[in-house]
Simulated scan of single mutants.
Amino acid sequence: MKKLVNNPVNVVEEMVEGYVRAHPDYIKQLQSNDRALVNARETKENKVGILIGGGSGHEPGFLGYVGEGMADGVAVGNIFASPSPDPILEVTKAIDKGAGVVYLYGNYAGDVMNFGMAAEMADLEEDIKVGMALATDDVASAPKEEKDKRRGIAGEFFIYKAAGAAADFGYDLEEVVRIAKKANQNTRSMGVGTSPCYLPQTGEPSFEIGDNEMEIGLGHHGEPGIEKGPLETADKIADRLVNDILADIEITKGEEVAVLVNGLGSTPKMDLYIVYRRVEQILSERGIKIYRSYVGDYITSLEMGGCSVTLMKLDKELTDTIDHPVNCPMFVQK
């Protein structure tokens, strides 16, 4: 796999530098830590701060969602690795406006440990109150009765959207955490992988798969899925992903959902819209209404092939957060 890089050891630092230089009106790098980025536009006092973060390689996640209406800062990790506690703490200090900070991150061992350590440091050293909400939307990663063990994948986008809006509405820390957790509880994702990505430092594929194979339930870092087999048509893949989601969460006729068909890095939008076409058909046949849809690369895995489908079950409260305007470098909603 050919990549446009210099020294592979420096890819994260050079990406962050390029991103900050490309979007100076939106984002700035803290002098105290080059992996700590915050909103360049001043936020109001007594607003709950929203801090997101995770490994690099998922662009536009996670740094692309710092901006008005979503996150106030991001801690950047190495490729597919959690940020260390230091940049998390530095971002926490920078975005605290007196109302505390909420950490949003995926349910991975490194993230759980490092964000937890940073929260303790913020409390003990800086007297900053921190709340946390984990993303556990990946249906394939654990059975329904063990949902707290599931990974966070593309559904994290909806959690950022809900929490960012709640903070903008002026809700306090406990309410922002509640809404973030509610968004996660109402969100399910299921993915398919068709080709691996290649880590810049090694040049090795993240997993092995045949030219005419696919893997259902593959993780965003190449974690094993639940089933490998011959590549199916877009309609059959969409049927499998949506039906597995609907078997896991009760969404009845007349209810509304937000839908995300997310590319993993190398899947053309043509393919994603073909998948979305079938997703819409399935939901329409069941009498489930699509309130808002998103199609494209929202949380990727370098140049991995494949896609995921995410449904978030809506009520009035979550619909209000979905409708809230956003202005980030990688995502704008008016």
Results as ranks from 00 to 15, higher is better:
1 M>E: 12
4 L>I: 10
6 N>D: 12
9 V>L: 14
13 E>C: 12
14 E>N: 03
19 Y>D: 00
21 R>V: 03
22 A>E: 01
23 H>G: 01
25 D>I: 06
29 Q>F: 13
30 L>H: 02
31 Q>H: 03
32 S>G: 08
32 S>M: 02
36 A>T: 01
36 A>W: 01
37 L>P: 04
39 N>Y: 05
44 K>P: 02
48 V>M: 01
50 I>H: 01
50 I>P: 00
53 G>S: 01
54 G>S: 00
54 G>M: 02
54 G>H: 00
55 G>L: 00
56 S>F: 05
57 G>S: 13
58 H>I: 02
59 E>W: 03
59 E>S: 12
61 G>T: 09
63 L>N: 12
64 G>Y: 09
67 G>R: 11
71 A>H: 07
77 G>F: 00
90 E>R: 04
95 I>R: 09
97 K>Y: 13
97 K>E: 08
104 L>V: 02
104 L>Y: 06
106 G>P: 14
106 G>M: 08
106 G>V: 07
110 G>K: 03
114 N>E: 05
115 F>P: 03
118 A>S: 06
122 A>L: 03
125 E>W: 14
128 I>S: 08
132 M>P: 06
132 M>H: 15
132 M>L: 07
133 A>K: 03
133 A>I: 05
136 T>W: 12
139 V>W: 10
146 E>A: 13
148 D>H: 14
149 K>I: 07
151 R>G: 13
152 G>F: 06
153 I>A: 08
153 I>S: 05
154 A>N: 14
158 F>D: 08
165 A>I: 07
169 F>H: 05
170 G>Q: 08
171 Y>W: 10
171 Y>N: 14
174 E>R: 14
175 E>S: 13
175 E>G: 06
177 V>C: 11
184 N>I: 11
188 R>A: 15
188 R>S: 10
193 G>E: 10
193 G>H: 05
194 T>P: 09
195 S>F: 09
196 P>W: 03
199 L>T: 15
200 P>N: 09
205 P>M: 00
209 I>M: 04
212 N>L: 10
214 M>R: 09
218 L>C: 13
218 L>K: 15
219 G>N: 10
220 H>T: 12
221 H>W: 11
222 G>P: 03
223 E>W: 10
226 I>F: 12
227 E>D: 14
229 G>D: 08
240 R>C: 15
240 R>Q: 10
241 L>V: 07
253 K>A: 11
255 E>W: 00
257 V>T: 02
258 A>C: 01
261 V>K: 04
262 N>V: 09
263 G>M: 02
263 G>E: 00
274 I>E: 15
275 V>A: 15
280 E>S: 14
284 S>I: 05
286 R>F: 01
289 K>A: 07
290 I>R: 06
290 I>F: 10
298 Y>C: 07
298 Y>L: 06
299 I>F: 14
301 S>N: 11
302 L>Q: 08
303 E>A: 12
306 G>T: 03
307 C>Y: 08
308 S>N: 04
309 V>S: 03
309 V>G: 09
314 L>V: 01
316 K>W: 13
317 E>P: 01
319 T>W: 08
322 I>E: 08
323 D>Q: 04
323 D>V: 12
324 H>A: 11
324 H>Y: 11
326 V>H: 03
326 V>A: 11
327 N>S: 15
331 F>C: 09
332 V>W: 04
334 K>N: 04
